[in-house]
Design a protein around this nucleic acid. Sequence first.
DNA 1: ATTACTGCAAAGCATTTGCAGACTG
DNA 2: CAGTCTGCAAATGCTTTGCAGTAAT
Lengths: 140, 140
Amino acid sequence: MNETKTEWPAGVKRTRQRQEVLAVLENSPSPLNAEEIFSLAKKNDGSIWLSTVYRILDLFVKKGIVTKASAMNSAFAIYEMNRYQHKHYAVCIGCRKVIQMDNCPMEKFTPRLDDGDFRVTGHKVEIYGYCKDCGAELPQ
Amino acid sequence: MNETKTEWPAGVKRTRQRQEVLAVLENSPSPLNAEEIFSLAKKNDGSIWLSTVYRILDLFVKKGIVTKASAMNSAFAIYEMNRYQHKHYAVCIGCRKVIQMDNCPMEKFTPRLDDGDFRVTGHKVEIYGYCKDCGAELPQ
DNA sequence: ATTACTGCAAAGCATTTGCAGACTG
DNA sequence: CAGTCTGCAAATGCTTTGCAGTAAT
């Protein structure tokens, strides 16, 4: 599978590797790290290099096609299609499963800062704890 | 300066390097990364190794004396005394300054998750944008 | 004296970079 | 065909680990 669902982004040279990376991201319901994107693209296509994946991801992030985040307590970054919807995640400490959150705690919130003026351009929220499969093992 | 303000934590062997690291953290108003802790400790004492600092920080985190976080878009972890108060930070994209937030967006918030049951044990919030010194350079 | 801790060096892991050949528009 | 992109290898930066000597209780 090598097709992207949407039209090709403007101002981005179309190469086999870029199509592959975009297709992988479009077809993933959850964010992926570079290594995962790399092996999925490789499975579909056969010839792609990890450093190329990083370069493509950087480009896509710069173009606003993809968003980059880093899951807490995790050494690596995760990437997903920028679907222009505001999303946050809950991460299970037990199994590392990532669960989408449907609401955002920042909706009705104004930060109170020591330093006076601060122009907020974005925020990051992550909740952690135990999912229904992992929580059972532990005492309340 | 080599003194710690509070009494020495129980169950932790007291060494010169550990005292130094704890003193550095106690005297810092803002979180520091390992390299910064290392050079401050070195300045005070002269003989300490970066890998030792990492080992000491891991120990302190495990003992609950220190908390570890990772500032967004930044490759390294930051550490600070666990003052048992709930704190979040705003990070300036321009100068990387870290500014404390006095309120918490999670106070009156219940996450709505796809996956049903999830026992929340903690959360992480980070706001980013431009501080008063860096914001001026950029257009509104 | 016994056990844990540190100095030091080297490895580890995610990510980045340099370069020459290959491909796109 | 000019310029960009990729394969590949090697470097980078933060952090971890192994080992033998040193220090703490």
